[in-house]
Simulated scan of single mutants.
Amino acid sequence: MDRELEVCIEIASSDSNRSGIESKPEFKTVVQRVLTGNLGCVFGTDELKEILVGSKLQLQQKMLEASDMPSFLIELVDTLEGILSSKSTNIDFQERSVSYWSQIMEQLDALGWEMITDLNADLSKVQIELSDASQRKHMLVVRFPQGFPAVPPTVEPLETPACNSEHSSLSQQLNSNALPFGQQPGLQSVIRHAEKQLEFFKEFWDVMQDIDEHTWVIDPEKPTRADRMRRCALGNHCSIQMNIDPLFPRSMPDTRLFGPANSIDPMRSKLYQNAALWDESKLPRENLEILLELPNGFPSPVNVSKDDINIECGICYSFRFDGQVPDQLCSHSKCQQPFHRVCLYEWLRSIPNTRQSFNTLFGACPYCSETITTTAPKQ
């Protein structure tokens, strides 16, 4: 301890009983009995007594349980160390808190309270609502450390898409939360950096919003601002997956078609044959409707029902199961029922006449009795 406290110890004589502790000896300073036990007594000043107010009962019990005075003294010293260290920390925090709170309040006043959607009682965390040029809402979370303003605030990164590796330097710059606060760290620097991100990704989010509003997105179930992939229903048990480049969102995306071969093969041919028609002045969704020759556009919840697109597993009757989407189809042209691999595998295993060759099962489709095959799902 950096602080000195006077503590006097009186050890009980070997022939003393519990009530026969020797009388208090003469001390040079004014002390009083603080703790008493069968091992002896602890005397101290009023200062020691005040420090131990909240711990006296606990120490008294430890003194009664101790095997000897030296072991109890170790407990006493540890307790005093903890109390004094805690009080010192509290004093330091109180001294800092006046500057800490006033600086944060100044920052929030300058920013504008209409932008604040949540604020911790101790002002350590603030949630700020930002809008991009298309009026989409984005939440920015800023945390103020106890050493603020000497220690800069930390920022939880906005939900933004990851850029491709060939543009890693730009990606790191845009997604970094190590902000250029300079000599005077503050919320204004945080907001400026966040607004640059919103401006940069504005067109990417426009493209994704158009897809979400004009197609039936079957994956991801709840897209975030960071998601670059959309899997959209095409009808007739078919779907298309597209990955949009955040840096060039109007360029032709990487695409993948899912569905029965007799349906997706003609679509794949159209996609490649019409690739030269891609027009970056149009949105990707509009371009894909042209390339795939969809006269009525993509199916969407507005113009088709869920039964029409038939994307749910024919065994568990859900689209997602344990994070997986249906990836198996009955090959019969009039059935083409989708299944989760794990559901179909377990179904076929339960049927007595199912044949097996290595890890592949051969059995009857539960809907049309057409022979259907599947392999064991990955563990």
Rank of each mutant, 00 (worst) to 15 (best):
K202P: 00
E114I: 03
T224C: 11
E166C: 09
I191N: 07
E129M: 15
G112M: 05
T154W: 05
P223R: 10
V142R: 07
V126Y: 08
R192T: 14
H193A: 03
D227L: 11
K222L: 11
L234R: 11
A133R: 09
G147W: 06
G186S: 02
W216Q: 03
E129I: 13
D227S: 15
V207T: 12
R192K: 01
E156K: 14
D118K: 05
E221W: 06
H193W: 00
K222M: 13
E156A: 09
L130I: 10
G112K: 02
K202N: 13
S239E: 00
L179N: 05
H193D: 04
L187F: 02
T215F: 05
C232G: 03
E114R: 14
D212H: 15
W113C: 04
R225N: 15
F148N: 04
S165V: 15
T154K: 08
P185M: 02
L187Y: 06
Q184R: 02
R136W: 01
C238F: 03
M115F: 14
L174R: 10
F144M: 03
E114L: 04
D210M: 14
H214S: 12
C238E: 11
M229I: 08
D210Q: 15
K137R: 15
I218L: 13
R225M: 15
C238N: 07
V126K: 00
E199Y: 02
F204Y: 07
D118S: 09
